[in-house]
Simulated scan of single mutants.
Amino acid sequence: MEDKRLRDKFGHTSTQELKFSKEDRDEVFEQIHKLEKNNNTPKKSFISSSKKFAPLTVSLFVLGLCIFLFMPSILSGNFNGERVVNEPEAEEAEYFTTLITVKSKDMDNRIYLNLLLTYSKDKKMMKVVSLPYDTYAQVGDKDDGTALYDKLLFAYRFGGAENVRTAVSKLFDLPIDDYAVIDLETISTLMDSMNGIEYDLQEDMRARAISQVAFEFKKGTNHLNGEQLVSLMMAATEGNSLDEEDLINLMNAIWKKAENNIPQPQLNELFTQIEANVSLDALLKNQIKINSIKSIALRDGMISDSITLNSTEGKHIYRFEQDFLNTISEELTTFN
């Protein structure tokens, strides 16, 4: 299923791209220590866990600031019943795919969240999988033409939004039709305009942050800003105290508040801050209905590993066996 349109070449790399901050280094060796303590732990079986959340369909696109795919439903004021998104131009296709990515300009354009979505027009069903940023993947090509592998975290550096799409497409051997790359600052602007959101946690937890090492969250109701929201979504992606149900519930919490607090002109302005391969006009041409959504988890196939850079530096990664990724691709593109 390789997409020949996505064979971009990137012929620049250096050892500088493999260096990371003190916080990253501390995290790496903490992970390595955990690996040494648990290296007798059996590998997880290749069975993906998934759940259906039909009532929460809209919320998945709130990560795209209620704009990228879901702008049609917002502009039309269709907030009841079945939700709608834009229809792809190639109506003959059995399904189409979309990648929504969150990056941070302040952190050298590292990407922290990737949502890969597939949609079946016939079944009116959508599926979604969230990728850990520590995923080890081909992020470009070296000067000699050989593949360059690193964390998905760095994929934007080697060719921008198009290269992020290429990296994820190659990882799953799955063509990706549309993409949107959203900066953390844009998400923070949206959250600030709504005065944040509230989310209930079942226990105290510590979650990795972006502009700082981590956030400490308390059991009960937490008032979240933009980075704290993304931090919890990252934790849910990796299954750290949270899971895919929390991922969707977080998005739903944004939707409920954005529905009544974000005016259309502001949404239009926010759209101009998103890197996407589709125009706002194209989004508004056609609409389709979504009856249900299915969330697919990757953590049953996540193999915690590390790469040694030198005697004092290393980095933590997640590897996936190809058989597992093939299973995920098949599940993403099979609609029964």
Results as ranks from 00 to 15, higher is better:
Lys44Thr: 02
Gln16Asn: 10
Leu65Pro: 00
Asp8Arg: 15
Ile67Asn: 08
Pro42Glu: 06
Ser21His: 07
Thr13Glu: 15
Gly64Trp: 02
Phe68Gly: 13
Leu65Cys: 03
Ile74Gly: 00
Ser21Asn: 13
Ile32Cys: 00
Glu23Phe: 02
Ser48Tyr: 04
Thr13Ala: 14
Lys52Cys: 08
Arg25Glu: 06
Lys22Met: 12
Leu35Gln: 02
Val58His: 10
Cys66Trp: 01
Phe53Cys: 09
Phe53Ser: 09
Ser45Asn: 08
Glu36Arg: 05
His12Phe: 15
Leu18Arg: 03
Ile67Arg: 04
Asn40Lys: 06
Asp24Met: 12
Glu23Asp: 08
Gly11Pro: 09
Ile47His: 04
Ser50Tyr: 03
Met71Pro: 06
Met71Arg: 08
Gly64Ile: 07
Leu69Val: 02
Gly64Asp: 10
His33Arg: 07
Leu69Arg: 05
Lys44Pro: 00
His12Leu: 15
Ser49Asp: 14
Phe20Cys: 12
Phe68Asp: 14
Glu30Trp: 03
Glu36His: 04
Phe68Ile: 12
Ser59Leu: 10
Arg25Phe: 00
Val28Glu: 08
Asp8Pro: 08
Glu17Tyr: 01
His12Gln: 11
Lys34Pro: 00
His33Trp: 06
Lys19Phe: 11
Glu36Tyr: 03
Ser50Glu: 04
Gln31Cys: 05
Phe20Lys: 13
Phe61Tyr: 04
Lys37Arg: 10
Asp24Tyr: 11
Lys52Thr: 05
Ile67Val: 07
Pro72Phe: 14
Ile67Phe: 01
Thr15Phe: 09
Glu17Gly: 02
Asn39Gly: 10
Leu63Trp: 05
Gln16Arg: 10
Ile47Glu: 10
Lys52Phe: 12
Val28Thr: 07
Leu35Tyr: 02
Asp24Leu: 11
Ile47Trp: 00
Thr57Gln: 14
Phe61Ser: 01
Glu36Cys: 03
Phe20Arg: 13
Glu17Ile: 03
Phe20Gln: 12
